[in-house]
Design a protein around this nucleic acid. Structure first.
Lengths: 199, 199
DNA sequence: TCGTCCATCTTACTGGGAGTAGGTTACCAG
DNA sequence: CTGGTAACCTACTCCCAGTAAGATGGACGA
């Protein structure tokens, strides 16, 4: 690795390094199949250190997820600044998302793994990070739409996020679908609605 | 339990019973937290029997998932027969879905857990059952829409499924959202598109 | 009624990974 | 040079998925 024999590194640095390695291992092997011993060894440190800093395997995964989600948020948020109108903002956001999942597969794979935590004590934490995601959409929408009904707007945000997540997973099976094409598909349904397609 | 001391039951019956119990335990404790020993004990049988019939913990979960998915499919399929037009069919299907997730929480909880299998050897199996789900939508759509582009239709189906899944999860946090209301929200975005809402 | 066969079922184990108790060592401050 | 503490380690426990090898009930032919 980069730091050949270096030991005794400050807490913050060590944590970053651990997250980096864990991200790799979790996304390669999958959450269940990954072992804390393996991660510890790759980091070049003993297992109790992982527990010192992250308390549990779940905690480590959550840290990775938060990291990736922060990046995703940053990327999509940046993409929408300076959008001309609602349609443009939506399209830019979608494109940024689909580019992200193609270029940063590892991070995206991790985000999908949060589902593995359903039914665990950390489920509340997951809820929190998820809200962050939908809030971004909700905020975007409230800036461009008339929303008499808050609940309705929230539902729409969840709807969009879910749809894109699934479409992204689908894209993994279709190498020929570029981010641009995926964006087009998404916009087509999302913006125009299915009504236009009825025969 | 119902069968007090009865032993030595034929394979098919025992399997059904195991699936029933496992469905209960998986949805209560969550997949990771559930133990095969516990399930075996509740069934009133020893652990190797579970492995005899389902090979692995994952296998048992998959059996439960297939069961639940079959029910869901049946329900939604039935709902759409005799629909007047595309809009009606879509609305009926959505309503049936949202009713299902409210009335059969246990089964729905299970379906969500399939995500926990991502990255495991059973991922292919999961893909298969998922395809079943999207095919239903795709078939429904192909019956009512003009689809010059197959890929596009497939994408749209994935899109709808993902959106509804997420919306359903959101509904769990909002007790006040009835299946009828959820359907309305979904139809509103899905059918009319967001364009109508732009200010 | 009595074997005999085999599907159903059991006890008793292994292996591996999550999580921990308690001690050790390098670095920094004074 | 000398505490003091943050970073670190060895060496465990316990739990749980998965398995080997054998026991048993009962259907069915004679």
């Amino acid at each position: 690795m980069t730091t050949a024999k270096r030991k005794r590194m400050p807490r913050a640095d060590r944590m970053r390094q651990m997250i980096e390695v864990a991200e790799q291992v979790f996304s390669e092997r999958g959450y269940a199949a990954a072992s804390m011993d393996e991660i510890a060894e790759l980091v070049g440190v003993s297992k109790p250190m992982l527990y010192e800093y992250f308390n549990s395997k779940e905690g480590l995964l959550l840290a990775c997820i938060r990291e990736s989600r922060a990046v995703l948020r940053e990327v999509t948020e940046q993409a929408t600044v300076g959008a001309a109108d609602a349609e443009d903002a939506l399209r830019r956001g979608l494109l940024a998302f689909f580019v992200f999942i193609r270029e940063r597969r590892q991070a995206w794979s991790l985000l999908r793994h949060e589902m593995a935590l359903i039914g665990t004590p950390a489920a509340d934490e997951v809820e929190e990070t998820r809200r962050q995601q939908t809030d971004l959409i909700a905020a975007l929408m409230s800036g461009h739409f008339d929303n008499g009904d808050d609940l309705k707007a929230e539902a729409a945000a969840e709807f969009v996020v879910g749809a894109c997540e699934r479409l992204a997973i689908w894209c993994e099976r279709h190498e020929e679908v570029t981010p641009e094409l995926a964006t087009e598909y998404a916009m087509d349904v999302l913006w125009s609605g299915l009504r236009d397609r009825a025969r």
